[in-house]
């Protein structure tokens, strides 16, 4: 029963959402609206489960003094402090919550993100080598896009034309192929889940 009931629930809701899309009527629209509301409510509860799981994981690492436990402590402390600031002082402009958000969180995240430029430059210098034809084509495309699209080369017709050709033809063709593959794969997996063939989401026996 522990496995049968979730499969039945999944089948019922999966089929309801599938059928209502193709059968427009008041009943199907109402069912669709109701289920859409439920999803949001369930997701809110899932967030609570997520926060509890996160706290349990980090607390256990801190209590066992595992390697890097201090960072686990920072994570837990940050979560608690931000939650308290939000609940007590509110999230409005000018409050302490937004002060931490604007003056600590945003600059720190942007700093980490911007460090990428330095590491990418170093990695590109050492690793982006034309070792064979495939590597050369990849290298050529990357340099052309970088120069012809994202920088001053965009104002120079031969470079911008080559870069645009790469984006519009080989790149977009590959993207389309990936999207079609992802679409077909999603349909296949969805059907397997709805019909109860795919059961890994239920966890172990």
């Amino acid at each position: 029963m522990r496995r049968t009931f979730p499969i039945l629930v999944c089948f019922s809701f999966g089929m309801t959402m599938l059928v209502q899309f193709f059968v427009p009527s008041k009943l199907s629209t109402d069912a669709y609206n109701e289920i859409t509301n439920w999803v949001q409510i369930i997701y809110a509860f899932a967030l609570i489960v997520g926060v509890v799981g996160l706290l349990k994981y980090h607390f256990s690492r801190v209590s066992r003094r595992e390697r890097g436990w201090f960072y686990n402590l920072v994570t837990v402390a940050s979560l608690i402090v931000m939650s308290l600031l939000g609940f007590i002082g509110g999230r409005g402009d000018g409050g302490s919550f937004m002060w931490v958000f604007n003056n600590m969180m945003a600059p720190m995240q942007a700093t980490v993100f911007s460090l990428l430029a330095f590491f990418v430059a170093s990695a590109a210098y050492r690793g982006f080598l034309a070792r064979n034809l495939e590597a050369f084509l990849l290298l050529f495309s990357a340099v052309m896009i970088m120069f012809g699209i994202a920088s001053v080369g965009n104002a120079i017709p031969p470079f911008s034309d080559i870069a645009n050709w790469i984006l519009i033809n080989p790149s977009m063709t590959a993207r389309r192929g990936i999207f079609i593959g992802v679409g077909l794969g999603t349909i296949a997996v969805s059907l397997r889940v709805i019909l109860g063939v795919e059961r890994t989401y239920l966890g172990k026996e």
């Binding site: 990418v120 430059a121 590109a124 080598l129 290298l139 920088s151 001053v152």
Partner: peptide, 21 residues
């Protein structure tokens, strides 16, 4: 800044490849 940074990166890629060859 972004354009110059890209040019710097392209420059290093070219130097890296010349050295490799």
């Amino acid at each position: 800044a972004q354009s110059i940074a890209h040019l710097v990166m392209i420059g290093f890629i070219i130097i890296g490849n010349v050295a490799f060859i």
